[in-house]
Amino acid sequence: MTELKDKDQQAIIQLKDLSIFYGDNQAVNKINLDFYKNKVTAIIGPSGCGKSTVLRSINRMNDFIDILHTKGEVVYENQNILDKNLDPTRLRRDIGMVFQRPNPFPKSIYNNIIWGPKINGFLKNPDELVEKSLRRAALWDEVKDRLHDSALGLSGGQQQRLCIARTVAMNPSVILMDEPCSALDPKATIRIENLIDELKDDYTILIVTHNMQQAARVSDYTAFLYEGELVEFGETDGLFTNPVEKQTEDYITGRFG
């Protein structure tokens, strides 16, 4: 645990005075936050606290919302990725995303995996990539005999692991997860949580969740957001057992939210 306390942890993504507005409505207010390399950071908070909005600014997914604009910086590899001149498609190769509901393409399992690398022009050994990615997402054994069947025939939990495999196939450095288990049953949820634990060796993971037990189980660090403000950030163990802020304590003990 002492190594986690190390302040020299390398921050891979830094939010600097990040504010996000929907039209005139401010959803996120001047957040400063570092996400550490090869760690799992959970962003928790009640519905509408801006946690998904923050997550989606990191791979510029918010670009699709016309009325949304941002202030401040999101720094990744020494650049402000919110810079309008930066090509978001390039950024998204590096920062992958797993969505709330499994969203495999209506293609075969095999083609779901190779699609990203193919369109981005770095697909070399498709068979190898498919096996490696599916193994990484703990899905290989279940689907190895039906790689060319439609991905839509898989169960919800399998589809979500396929979406993780699809993201892993891009070899990103960061994976954003937006409530990845909210549409899954408890058994499928456990599998995804175990997977997150294995994936952090190779990737930095940011996970938004409304499920505090989940945050406590999977993450190394936790950020608690409330009404667009960062209330508290710290090591998960510390934040859950000994929160500094009263609001954090009220939330994690279930007094509101």
């Binding site: 997914m61 699709f64 992958g96 969505f99 969203n103 979406c163």
Partner: peptide, 10 residues
């Protein structure tokens, strides 16, 4: 989310 899944892969 289907479209966004595409965009999220660059």
């Amino acid at each position: 989310s289907l479209k966004q899944g595409g965009y999220a892969l660059g």
